[in-house]
Structure formats: structure tokens, C-alpha cells
Design a protein around this nucleic acid. Structure first.
Lengths: 310, 310
DNA sequence: TCTTTCATTTGTCCTGGACAAACTTGCGTG
DNA sequence: CACGCAAGTTTGTCCAGGACAAATGAAAGA
């Protein structure tokens, strides 16, 4: 995007792991098996990944998350990959008026118009109310930002700026409601490797207006600590958020492990991209498919615990 | 089905990496060099860490963050480790009335009284105003939490809870001011390895009431991106925050590198524990020693740029 | 007292082999 | 035809043990 952004066009394997979410071991074994990626080496024989290969890896990662398999796409060209990505994006259709608004907001993100972005967000919040704001504005925008990021159309600062502004707005709104005594009591957090916090804030924003007593621990809480906090704090529900980038396998394993650690009377919810369609592999866990399903899950809990509540 | 979760107190190496933050490679090499940890093996020769060793690793991790070295403490017993933690408490004394208030707040953090903590914070904010609130309440409390964390008196969830509540309050307050056209324009962020965000929020809270146009990019922004954002966004000042845990050397080197990348007319500020007393090693960088010094630095800038401003 | 030089510590990276879980495919049965 | 089960492939993670550079601490010099 700018001239200096390509001065250092080589990344170490650790940096690539950070940027793509692919483990070092995975990167090495792909190189061995598929011949891709094929990084340069420095004087000491350590891998140096050119930026273009990292971009390709990001694309591949995205396709993997959508069910493709490595052997098929590891050797594919950039064009073939883009064609596959194009196929994936067709199914996300919505009404055109909304798409136009989203595009305007996305433009604010791109151009560093932080003030405009902020006030546009606050305005939308006032107009739509918290829950619809999250569903109709924040979530689509987050997805648009994620896609633009994957396609390399926006850079780190833009993504950070977006996250910060949304956090400001949502935290203000959530704090304003601040119900103390409601039921159920919900504990929200993510696993240690998951640092994305927007999913938690959106979930909180869905629940707080329903009179739920929500407590978010933020991101990166170790499993044992989640359990201790849930039991010690007398919570009814533990809610986990997984971004699309989170390895599905780890999400499932971790959720099951936590389920086994928690006492039976505490309900476990899991939501976010990584656990979509994973309900059948998660017995005992309520997979929350999208933000609106949060309300359904809440209804279910209240129906099941109606007698015990009073 | 669920009784096994108690007896099965063994974690895989991946799970231990999650819970302790120590990389798999590090865990293996410690075992080789220091004989600790010494996990069991399963039928396939894979490591199985007993829960007690994981707990010990967590403690060791904390000591490492405060400057201890692995060779010294890897072989130590649990008692010796606890003794070391006791020694490390840096005795910071202040006036007793305030210490009492801090203690009360800290108690809220400890006991999972999130609602009380939240309302006590908001009350203090209203009473003191944003700037004094940050200086007299948030900063001392953050330090107290850090020390309690070191001594093992509080755990991950408590620390997370504290951070979340403070974020909620500060973000609401900062957002309410939301000056658009003020000068100078300040860009706040941290380096990629620094994930602590409270320092940024506190700095923003100090600046915003002074009519400064503050934009925080949050944590973990790569160097090149900071430069691009600062230049592209027309900022006057870039502010960096380093927690006490950040390696001082890395902070100095990084700040100097960024200084070299930035055009001369953009001022660079660096604040936080890692750069305290490092002014002499940072020519061209204004080291901000503590929150109150932020106001002084701002005055300096305004004095130096008074002519150019209008 | 402060900087510079040298020795030690320590985290990360390397290779190449192994294996179990997950997925695919093909087959036989209700 | 639907469906479950067995055999075959794919794929991510783990292991050992060697290597090295960055970080740190100690010693020497200005």
C-alpha cells in the first residue's frame, strides 16, 4: 500500500505463524510434502518467507477453513485460488441497500477517517438499538473487514483502527446497561490462543438488553481458570467465542475438555466461525450459530430453568 | 464419563503451552537441560504433564517475567519458589488514606465482585474527573494488581476482570469527549510484542481532556505500519507504551528505529515501565515518565509549535 | 561511574522420522 | 436406495538431539 511496507519483504517462520495462524510444524511439513511454501534461507539456513508466499498462505488458510484440503490447493496458482475464493463469497448475499451502507463504512476504515467512522457507528447505534446495531452493522462490517484483510486490500493499522472504534462504541453501550442482579449469569471469554475480542463484545451486546448479567473476562483465559472463575463466581452459563481464524480442531477439543471440567449444571455455549456446523461433534455444548441464535439459546436456557429460577 | 476428568490430571504438551504460555520447544529443552518438567509418557512416547507440574510451570513463568532466570529456578522446590515470589514484592509506599481506598478496590478484584468494582470505578471517575481518576485511582490500582499477581494472590481471571472493567470505564469516558479537530493529533499504539493496552488508554485519558485529537490503534502494531499510519494520517505525535514486563533493550532499539523511520516533524513519545530512566539512551525521543509528565510533554510540544499552529 | 569485551545462558530453529485422528472411498446389508 | 461399517489416504502434531544467535551477567578498561 505504501512504499516502506515492502522494505522488509521477508518474514521468519515465527512471523508467518503469527500472520497466517499455521503452526511452524505445519509450514515445514507442507514444504516437505507439497513443495509449497518454498522459502529462501538466510546465512544460517533459517527459512525466510517472501511476502507474496505469505499472502498466498493466507488465502489457502481461508480456503482450508471452508473445507478445502491442502493437497488440492497447495500447488494451485494465485488465479486458481482467487477463483475458489470467489465461489465461496457468492453465498453471502443480502439486500443491496444494506450492502451500500456497509461499503460506506468500509471506506471510512480504509481511508483512516477515524472520526467519521466513530460517529457513523454511534449514529447507527442510536438509530437501530444495540441488538440490531450489532447484527446489521457491526457483524457485516467485521466480515467485510476480514475479507478485505484476506485479500490484502487493507493493512494492519486499518484493521486495528476498526477494532478500536468498535470496541469504544460497544463497551460504552454495554456499560450503560450494566444490569447487576439479572439471570442467567453469563461468563464470556476466549481460549488462550484466541485474541479476538469483538465476538465477545457482540455477544455481550446481544445479551445485556435481555436482562442477562454478563461478565466478560476478555480474551486469552486458560482452561483451568475459566473453570475456576465459572464455579467460583456462581455462573449459570459459560460463553466461548472463536474467530474464523481459530483452528477448528483445537476449538472442538478445548470445548469438550472444558465441558468435562465444568459441573453439569453450568451450561456451555460456543460461538463463532470456527465452531459453525460443529454441533454434532460437541455433545453437551450448545453451539450458537450466529448472533441471532444467541437469543434462541437464551430462551432455551430460561425455559429449561424456569422452575428453578424462582 | 465425567469422573475421569478428575483422575485424568494429565495434559498434552499443546495443552501445557496453552496454559503456561511456554512454547513446546521451550518445554522440551528445559526437560533436556534442567530435568524439569519431567512429564510421564503415553503408549506412543508422547509427553503427559501432571497437573502439579503445570502449576509449578505457571509459577516459574511469573518469576521469569520479573527477571529471574530459568537455570536458577527450574530445579527449585515449590517452597523456594514461593519464597522468591515473596522477595520480589517491590515495596512502594504512598499515603495511607489512599492505600486504604486502593485496598478496598483490590478486594473487589479479588472476590469477583465485578459489579461493585465497576460502580466504584465509575463513582471515582465522576468524583475526581478523568485525569485525576487515572492518576489517583487507576494507575495505583493497576500497580497493586500487578504486585498481587506476582505474589500469586490473584489469578488470571481476576487480572482479566480488572483489565476489562477499567477498559469499559476508560473507553466510555474517552469516547464521550471525542474531540475531532484539536491539535496536536496524537497516534497511540504499542509494538507487536506488547499486548498490554491499559497504558494506552490511560495516556489517552490524560490527553483527551486537553483538547488533543487522540487516535489509539490498540496494541501490537508492526513498526512499518506505525510509520505509515502516522505519515498517512497527518499526525503530529506518535505515542508508544511499554509495560514493565517489556524487555528494556528491545524497547530502546525499537524506539530508535522508529525514530529513524519517522520524518523529523513528527514527535515521538515513549512511556511506561520499560523506558523509565532511559531518556539519555533515546535521543530524539521524549520519554514520558509517568502520567503527569504527559501534560508536561504536551505543554512542551505546544510551546515549540505555537507559531506553526495558527 | 560508566562503557566495552568476553563467557554463559537461553529460546528458537533445523532435519527427518513416526503415528493417530480425520477424512474418503468402496463394499455389503437392511 | 439409504445407511453403516471396514480399509485406505491424508494431514496435523509430536519426537530426538543438534545448532546457533540473541540476551544476559561478569570482568576489564576508560
Amino acid at each position: 500500500m505504501n512504499d516502506t511496507s515492502r522494505t522488509e519483504a521477508f518474514l521468519s517462520i515465527a512471523a508467518v505463524e503469527r500472520d497466517t495462524g499455521l503452526a511452524k510444524d505445519t509450514l515445514r511439513v507442507w514444504e516437505r510434502r507439497y513443495g509449497f511454501p518454498s522459502p529462501e534461507r538466510d546465512a544460517n539456513g533459517e527459512r525466510l518467507y517472501p511476502q507474496e508466499q505469505v499472502d498466498k498462505l493466507r488465502l489457502i488458510r481461508r480456503l482450508l477453513d471452508h473445507g478445502q484440503r491442502p493437497a488440492r490447493i497447495a500447488g494451485a496458482s494465485m488465479d486458481e485460488l482467487n477463483a475458489l475464493v470467489g465461489q465461496l463469497r457468492c453465498d453471502s448475499s443480502s439486500d443491496p441497500a444494506q450492502a451500500e451502507r456497509d461499503a460506506a463504512l468500509l471506506q471510512y476504515v480504509r481511508l483512516h477517517r477515524s472520526a467519521e467512522l466513530s460517529s457513523a457507528l454511534r449514529q447507527a447505534l442510536l438509530k437501530q438499538g444495540l441488538q440490531r446495531f450489532v447484527i446489521d452493522t457491526v457483524a457485516p462490517l467485521a466480515e467485510a473487514v476480514g475479507e478485505a484483510w484476506m485479500r490484502g486490500e487493507i493493512d494492519v493499522p486499518e484493521e486495528h483502527l476498526f477494532t478500536e472504534q468498535v470496541q469504544n462504541v460497544l463497551r460504552s453501550a454495554n456499560g450503560a446497561h450494566a444490569g447487576t442482579g439479572g439471570r442467567p449469569r453469563v461468563l464470556l471469554t476466549t481460549f488462550p490462543e484466541e485474541e479476538h475480542v469483538l465476538g465477545l463484545l457482540m455477544a455481550e451486546a446481544m445479551l445485556v438488553p435481555e436482562g442477562v448479567a454478563c461478565l466478560s473476562l476478555g480474551a486469552r483465559t486458560p482452561l483451568a481458570d475459566i473453570r475456576n472463575a465459572a464455579v467460583g463466581g456462581g455462573f449459570d452459563i459459560v460463553g466461548l467465542s472463536f474467530s474464523m481464524a481459530y483452528p477448528a480442531r483445537q476449538a472442538v477439543d478445548g470445548a469438550l475438555e472444558l465441558r468435562a471440567m465444568l459441573p453439569e449444571e453450568i451450561t456451555l455455549w460456543a460461538g463463532g466461525g470456527a465452531v459453525r456446523d460443529k454441533q454434532k461433534r460437541l455433545p453437551g455444548v450448545r453451539v450458537v450459530c450466529g448472533l441471532e441464535d444467541t437469543l434462541l439459546a437464551l430462551q432455551e436456557w430460561r425455559a429449561a430453568n424456569a422452575v428453578a429460577a424462582d
